[in-house]
């Protein structure tokens, strides 16, 4: 088991956001997490990256307890997140954003991965000297994904990669997610676009007000009446 989340709880002040979440991700899997606004999806991903305090439960990565590990330690282990809202370093150039993605790696390793990222997103190469804040939303999303790839993730956490993008760009981003999976990156994907997320996922979890209420293969959940009604708008 690559990632094992056991009874994870987290709160904002006195307001609980996660109330005992159990999730498992195996090596090479693409696991999706769907749920409404405020269900705790982003909180869960932030807790996995170590930037959101945990009040109970454990997080195991390859059998190792990382519940209390600092964020940079988790990046070093290979847990890398593409945060919600892209969060690029707006005034820095595209190239600097990518280099910082490989902050914990050597210059030569970074240069190698950078070529791969440019091959995946040629538009980033053509804009490499521009400030990241000047890119379009879709380009910023590509940059955010590229920056995460620069760390050579073993487990990639994707938070709402298609949010606010035009349908054609959503397709492009999902194609890229599939390509990453083909290249055997393990992916944990959060997206409000439940249909697209379930379509590419091996397995999925449905989160409601801080609890996992359903789990199954992507195809199973697509056929589930509750999911159809609540998240697919059928």
């Amino acid at each position: 088991m690559m990632l094992e989340v056991q009874g994870l709880a987290s709160r904002y002040g006195r307001i609980p956001a996660l109330k005992g979440v159990d999730i498992q991700v195996r090596q090479g899997e693409l696991v999706a997490l769907v749920g409404a606004n405020g269900a705790g999806k982003t909180t869960l991903l932030r807790a996995l990256s170590g930037v959101q305090p945990v009040s109970a439960g454990r997080v195991l990565f390859e059998g190792r307890d990382i519940t209390a590990a600092a964020p940079d330690k988790r990046v070093r282990l290979g847990i890398v997140q593409v945060p919600e809202g892209r969060q690029v370093f707006a005034p820095l150039t595209v190239e600097d954003n990518l280099r910082l993605g490989a902050y914990l790696r050597s210059k030569s390793q970074a240069a190698q991965t950078c070529e791969r990222v440019y091959a995946m997103f040629p538009v980033l190469k053509s804009k490499r000297r521009e400030a990241a804040g000047m890119l379009s939303g879709g380009q910023q999303q590509m940059l955010a994904i590229g920056r995460a790839l620069m760390a050579e993730p073993r487990l990639l956490l994707l938070d709402e990669p298609s949010m606010g993008l035009a349908p054609r760009l959503v397709e492009e981003i999902f194609a890229c997610v599939c390509a990453l999976k083909e290249a055997s990156t393990t992916i944990f994907l959060v997206d409000q676009n439940a249909r697209a997320a379930l379509a590419v996922a091996d397995r999925a979890y449905v989160l409601e007000t801080g609890r996992v209420v359903l789990t199954g293969s992507g195809a199973e959940l697509m056929e589930n009446e509750q999911v159809k009604e609540a998240y697919l708008g059928l």
Partner: peptide, 12 residues
């Protein structure tokens, strides 16, 4: 510029 993103790329 972005403390959260800095933490997520592994900057202490």
């Amino acid at each position: 510029h972005n403390r959260l993103a800095a933490q997520l790329v592994g900057i202490n």
